[in-house]
Amino acid sequence: MVQRIAGMMASFSGVLMGNSTAPRHWPAWTIYLRTMGLFCLLWYAMSWLTPNKILLPSPLDVASALRDRIDDGELVANATVSLTRLLVSVSIASLIAIPLGLAMGTSRLLEDLLEWPVELLRPIAGIAWIPLALFMFGIGNGLPIFIMIYTAFFPLLLGTAAGVRNVDRRLISAARTMGIPKGTLMRHVIFPAALPSIMTSARLAVAASWTAVVAAELVGAPSGLGYAIEYYRSMLDTPSVMAFIIVIGTLGFLCDAALRSLSAALMPWANAEEKR
């Protein structure tokens, strides 16, 4: 489903050409709507059966709460804060992890050197650092951004390094027989050949980082979507809590779709290669 929607978006933007699925089928988004409708119906039935509306508010309550939060500006304000944090932390993580990954993929020595610290740090979830980060950064932007950089860093580093290591040797041979110098080889052969793998790891990094932002904001920030959930929970306003949860899911999905479109636009060749 996710793939079909993203695929449609890509074909709308005219990046993909000439591979439409059978035209007589319903468009993918109508199937999506039907599934969602069914889900809402089930949800509605269950909330009707639940005596305490605070435990499970009905979809209608959530929808009206969602409208209220849009009207009073809470939603846009908190979403902007969280998305900005995501953008800042993934950018910083990319600036460190991608060059380091490129170096790691080409240098045996650096790989051996970094392997142990990376393998020791990687299994620790970003949110495990929250208590310590609270001491270090206090409440504010510092904590969620630190946690998110940490979370985005490892998929980017390892994905880039693996991408470089898996570059088709024949392409490097071909470039070398053309007398291509080392620096150019990195820029014009190794990097573009590893780019699909780097983009995939960027998608993983964004998804993980988005999960971490909510957790970090639940504890360590006076703003953002995670903070909003915690705030409305303390008010016992569960419809608003649900509304924010839906927003988090939707924004996460849209971020991934945007990255997919970006990949397709950057690498029309890779997209088709995958489909083979």
Binding site: D168, R170, L171, S173, A174, T177, G179, V189, L195, W269
Partner: peptide, 18 residues
Amino acid sequence: GPGAERGVMFQDYALFPW
């Protein structure tokens, strides 16, 4: 080592997909 004065055409083409 390799050099530009010796051009190679590879059996499996080795074209740059990008």
